[in-house]
Simulated scan of single mutants.
Amino acid sequence: MTLHMDAFLDRVKERGEYENRQEAQRAARVILALLGAHLVGEVRSRLAARLPEDFALILLNPLQSAEPLSPERFVRATAAWIEGATPRTAAWDVGAVLSTVADAAGDDLLQQVLLQLPAGYDLLFGRPEPT
């Protein structure tokens, strides 16, 4: 089930405690562009199909990543792309956006997404793996 743009942004706005949808949208664009660089093939296509169209296109046409970023470097890269962000606020941004993406993906698809990512991303999606 695809979330509509307004519903998606409202969730990100609420979770990120942003003042407005524009801030939520800016964070979502950056984070989905970074995430898209880490995913390939059918998993990326299936995840894109569950996102609002604008965000699906960002996920499918990502920033190029030379190597998979660890969760810590993913947060640092987010901070570098969002004006005025710090690693702490970027971690908040990542959590707000990726937990909303996790909701849209559903558990089965999220498991496949996590298999393509370095260890530790389950925490960024707000879905810690049981140890």
Results as ranks from 00 to 15, higher is better:
T78C: 10
D93T: 01
W81I: 01
A102N: 10
T100H: 05
L110K: 02
S99H: 13
E83R: 13
A77F: 09
A105C: 06
A119H: 07
T89P: 00
E83S: 08
G120H: 05
L124R: 09
V101G: 02
S99Y: 09
A80L: 15
P87L: 05
Y121W: 09
R88G: 03
Q116N: 03
L115K: 10
R76L: 15
A80N: 11
T89S: 15
T78F: 11
D122N: 13
A96L: 10
D107W: 07
S70N: 13
A79W: 01
L110Q: 05
A77Q: 05
L114S: 02
G106L: 11
G84R: 09
W92G: 02
P71Y: 00
T86F: 07
V75R: 00
P87A: 08
A77Y: 02
R73H: 15
Q112L: 15
L69D: 03
T86P: 11
E83M: 09
A90Q: 07
L110A: 09
Q112K: 14
D107P: 12
L98N: 03
F125V: 07
T89R: 14
A79D: 03
L109K: 11
P71V: 00
L117C: 04
G84S: 10
F74V: 13
V94Y: 05
R76A: 13
A105V: 03
A102D: 07
G120T: 07
A85W: 04
P87C: 05
R76G: 01
L109A: 08
R88I: 10
A102L: 09
T86M: 08
